[in-house]
Design a protein around this nucleic acid. Sequence first.
DNA 1: ACGGCACGTGAGAGCGCTCTCGCGCAACGC
DNA 2: GCGTTGCGCGAGAGCGCTCTCACGTGCCGT
Lengths: 345, 345
Amino acid sequence: MAETAPRPTLEAVAARAGVSRATVSRVVNGGDGVREPLVERVRKAVEELGYVPNQAARSLVTRRHDAIAVVVAEPETRVFADPFFALQLRGISKELTAHDNQLVLLLTEGRDDHARVGRYLAGGHVDGALVFSLHLDDPLPELIQRAGVPTVFGGRPGWSGDRRGVVYVDVDNRGGARDAVRHFVGLGRSRIAHITGALDQTSAVDRLDGYRDVMVDGDPQLIVESDFTPAGGERAMRELLARCPDLDAVFAANDLTAAGAMRVLREAGRRVPEDVAVVGFDDMLPVAEQTEPSLTTIRQDIEEMGRLMARLLLRALERNAADQGITAAPSSVVLPTTLVRRASA
Amino acid sequence: MAETAPRPTLEAVAARAGVSRATVSRVVNGGDGVREPLVERVRKAVEELGYVPNQAARSLVTRRHDAIAVVVAEPETRVFADPFFALQLRGISKELTAHDNQLVLLLTEGRDDHARVGRYLAGGHVDGALVFSLHLDDPLPELIQRAGVPTVFGGRPGWSGDRRGVVYVDVDNRGGARDAVRHFVGLGRSRIAHITGALDQTSAVDRLDGYRDVMVDGDPQLIVESDFTPAGGERAMRELLARCPDLDAVFAANDLTAAGAMRVLREAGRRVPEDVAVVGFDDMLPVAEQTEPSLTTIRQDIEEMGRLMARLLLRALERNAADQGITAAPSSVVLPTTLVRRASA
DNA sequence: ACGGCACGTGAGAGCGCTCTCGCGCAACGC
DNA sequence: GCGTTGCGCGAGAGCGCTCTCACGTGCCGT
């Protein structure tokens, strides 16, 4: 914890290299328009003094921070329980790092935190924001829109407000769900049940919609609402077995739910996949590979989602910088899913 | 993405309130030494203009950033696969937020990233760092020490360098391991095996040491090296069964490994816990509660660990600010573990 | 050979804030 | 009553950087 090593300034480097501050600045920022011998001298001086630019001073004049905020709503327990969160962050981090941007992490819990985040973003500490806010009633998107900070959302925001200029990255929940159900159909199953996720999240709604796309005129008894948790999956499965003992397939809204459901099926003496086939969603490895039998599921590339979010945001920022440029404003992206076939269906 | 809302400056607020910049600054920073009516007037002006201080300008003069870096080494797959990571971040975030500090997340992978992180920290962008670096050969701690940034480590750094002033927060891996093994002894087991974690991490080494503390003069055949993964657990368990078919208990270095081991035990026709008792480590809920039977394990309070790290760091920073103050330098903390009894032992 | 042009470099202003300093005023002691 | 303290406030410097602008040099055209 050695303190007070007085960091060298531009001035110091300039003196040592025998040039002006301006020239050092030019070299440090790419060296365009400075002749080679000078560049060399300045580089040497920078090296010798161990000069590192003072970011605060630079930001003060450029009004850029090379930092973006990642906002994660804590009630988003799903995000927290899963490796999701880590993977998305990893994708984001990689992309940001590649463009010399810093990642400022903002975790929220509760309403007052929303205000805090709003203030922070409005405070112009960061150049943009990546926001995970999958709840239908979340006030965050609106707060952020008001803050006027370029933003990309993770997951389609279920949000009734002004949609213009809202950019998000999502996975094809609906298409993935259709694939799952069609897979059952291909296996010759007909009494296909669905255990939904928490329906205040767009992902759960979309997956349900996908299920319905295939099961047109399906038996509504085959749909049970749940909450993305294993315990919820157990409860839902019990109810399903009571309501529709003849079911022969279950599409669970995520892998955790599927794991819970499979446990109940086993207890009830139903064999998986012989009696009842099961498909999950997410391909959350520690879960999907550990279940007995291993879980057939819909994979989404979480890390890529993070990376893409970052990329879109950075592009938007560039565009802003380039004076409302010629480039098109980035628009939302929906990533594809793939069915990963294992033992459960 | 409305841009160019010209943010009001201190000057503007001062003008509106009819006072000097200095006074506004005082009010904004706590209002000490300013008389009530003026405070009121300034507050009102701030409110009306929606003034938010420019952090860059402030940092430029105060040399503080109210930001701390959290450095997570990516090879730390363990950290990434687990909910660990999220929980620790949550604890850190809570504590930092409570003290108006920002969290800058730095994820690394590979050597060049180390250099990048070193540069970033040395660049004085943040006031301090929280570093997760559990590998024995990790160059990061030394880099950081050189950067002269106040740092608290997560997990005892296995590091051969200068130990002075190194502060870390760890859980009592050794004590927890002892508890696990003693629990077996209490159950009347005597052929107690241990599947280690990746022994390049101090946590794995400590857990092994704890096991040995109780199994003095134990059969070395009962110890198999592994790597914290489920697959590794399976492999290790198979080897153990081959080497010591008479074993009656297994202490696995973490829950994932335990889950893998239990699967192999089941395949081998050994009943858990009747024939072989199993204890894990971590109490990673999604795993420990999902195994069949549910897993007895050693719980550590991960979130608290994060919170504590942040608290220690903030205290160190305060101390620094208070001119090498009277307060004692914070020292490392080792958090206790508790045995959570479920069905597997 | 001289004017013009472009390019490389330096001088200097200023980003928005904090903080020291000094001034003025009220309250105190003698 | 005057000198003295102390507190509240304003003036102004300066944090380290970028960026505009003006200047000097070398090179071209004619």
